[in-house]
Simulated scan of single mutants.
Amino acid sequence: MTSDLHGQARSFARELQETLNGTICRDIRMVAVVRPFSASGTVFTIGSGLSKANPTQPQGFPLRTDRKKPLAWMNLSYQVRMDDELTYLTIHSSYCGIFTDETLETCLCHFDFEREKEQYTSAHLQVHGTSPALAALNRGKDAKRSLDKLHFPVGGKRFRPSLEDIIEFLIAERFVDARPGYEEVLERGRERFQVKQLRAAMRRHPDVVEQFVKEQAAT
């Protein structure tokens, strides 16, 4: 089963790599490396700069399509495992941070997904900056809470942003330059993500699928 997981994890890493290099990056390599230990069973980390010697800490990479100095950097990682039926690859957690420096010290925002989080929504966005409104809302033990400590919900487990959505955001806001034809790359990747999410939802709700099929047959 570990070999099957590794194969699916490597395939997913290639998909991410092709999406990045086809839109806002050049020569980025995404790899899948098994983690030394996980309470969730066998888990692979997917990211840039990983190896057997470094299986858990992906490196940031520049967002540029040429050799010009980049304005932004991305730190991207996924932890993946097999689902409860030991059949399909599932994302246990993911992180996508946008930074303005190679050392990843100055963060604009990061998109997180943590499947087993209970304190706040599993898919969320955290934004770095200042907010007079937050200062006015804070009180008591939260009086000094900063903006980056808020977890803004972004669609939950099934409808969270995909990597393609984040890339489109960076392009639309003019933080990065894009390759010609990037729209087609994003559309292919987004379609792939949405189909996977739909299939997962169908497996978890066969009664809804059955009812839908009956309704369609009756029309």
Rank of each mutant, 00 (worst) to 15 (best):
K196E: 14
E184N: 07
V195L: 09
H205G: 01
G189N: 15
L170Q: 13
A201R: 01
Q197Y: 05
R192V: 06
E184H: 07
H205L: 01
R190H: 14
F175A: 00
E187L: 13
R203P: 00
L170R: 10
E173T: 09
V195Q: 04
A200I: 01
A201S: 07
E183G: 05
V185Y: 01
R192W: 09
D177M: 13
R174K: 14
K196V: 06
I166R: 07
E187Y: 11
E168Q: 07
E173M: 02
R190G: 09
M202T: 03
A201G: 03
R204S: 08
L198C: 03
R190W: 05
F175I: 12
G189D: 11
G181P: 04
E183H: 09
F175N: 01
R190T: 14
Q197V: 11
E164D: 12
R188M: 15
E168T: 04
Q194L: 15
Q197K: 13
E187Q: 14
I171M: 09
R199G: 02
E183I: 12
F193S: 11
E184R: 04
E184T: 13
E183Y: 10
L198E: 12
E187A: 15
E184G: 07
I167V: 08
E164P: 05
Q197R: 15
F169H: 15
E187G: 06
Q197G: 11
R192S: 15
A178F: 07
V185T: 15
R188T: 15
L170P: 08
V185G: 01
K196F: 10
D165Y: 08
R174V: 08
R179C: 08
F169K: 12
V185E: 04
R190V: 10
K196P: 06
E164R: 09
R188W: 15
A200L: 00
V176R: 04
